[in-house]
Amino acid sequence: MSRILHTFIVIASVFLAVSDARLAAQEAAAAPPADTGPDEFQVAAAQPDGSQAGSSRRRRGRATTYKVIEVKDGGVVTGTVQYMGVVPKPRKIHVVKDHETCKQHPVEVPLMRVDAEHRVGEAVVYLADISAGKDWPKSDAKSTIDQKTCEFHPHVQVVRAKSPVEIVNSDPVAHNINASQRIFTLFNILQPQQGMKATQQFERPGLVNLKCNVHDWMQAYVHVAVHPYIVVTGDDGSFRLEGVPPGKYQLGVWQEYLGEQIFDVEVKPGETTQMDVVLKPKAGEEGTAEKTR
């Protein structure tokens, strides 16, 4: 019975892949421009301790093209991302198939990774409106999306636009990787056997959502960028952007539960700017972390 069920899942996944491929071809003609961000962002408000917290306003505009230039007297933006609100409860996972492989998957998945000092890991920090600056570092390494123990690894990552990305199935069960950007399906690849690999490219900058139709709890995020001023925060919420041309910018911070918020930052020639930002809770969730104790 389990073999019949597994065969049915594989056939269903193939059908989904073919259907999405046809849909992707239709959507390509109507694809949005590279700037696919929302019209409303968050901007910084000064706090008594010198940190910044988000508040809503219209954005100034986001660069959709990027020019590599020689950066003279570049500055550094460094700091931490923090969250003082109530941390949401983890998402509960119910493994209903491929138990031998997927049983190692955590039964709860955090929507926010916040440590005891309120620092936020796996947030993405970037200069939202920069249009010229340094080149990407030289590297022969490919970005990788691995499917292992019925999870995507890494959960959040940054990828250069139009660079090759290797997709791997490390599990002995079938997976498919369904990538979408807003309402547009980018690709849907079936990998029914362990060790299978495929290479794809993300053409447009912006947030890409990954999911597996075979195991619906699998989810991950890829941030596609045209410039190198973008990083994922460490477990301690830290980030560092180097070689930034002097000027005033919008510093974007994205987190999967809270979404995107924007903070003002000024970079001075040859100087290091400390930016300890505090993410704003969602509307209706303005309580502080102390209330959960």
Rank of each mutant, 00 (worst) to 15 (best):
E151T: 12
V265E: 00
S2P: 04
H155I: 09
E151V: 08
V81D: 01
I167F: 01
A283F: 06
I230W: 02
G247R: 03
K138H: 09
Q191Y: 00
E100D: 15
T199H: 04
A17E: 06
S55E: 08
Q193D: 14
E100N: 14
P164R: 01
R91N: 11
K67F: 09
V208D: 01
Q157F: 08
P245K: 00
R119D: 08
G247F: 04
R119L: 15
Y257M: 10
L127Y: 03
M196L: 10
R22V: 14
K248Q: 09
P164K: 01
V107F: 13
D129E: 02
Y66K: 01
M1L: 12
G61T: 05
I4S: 12
H155T: 14
D236V: 13
G284Y: 02
P281T: 02
P48N: 03
K268F: 10
V77Q: 00
R58F: 12
T199P: 02
G237F: 06
A24C: 13
A283Q: 07
P38W: 13
A63R: 02
S55Q: 09
T101G: 04
P172M: 06
R22W: 15
V86Q: 11
D39C: 13
C212R: 00
T272P: 02
K162G: 11
K197C: 06
V173W: 02
A179C: 07
E117S: 15
F202T: 01
F239V: 03
P106H: 07
A45N: 05
N176S: 10
D115R: 06
C102L: 10
L207K: 11
E290R: 12
T273L: 03
K103R: 15
V14A: 13
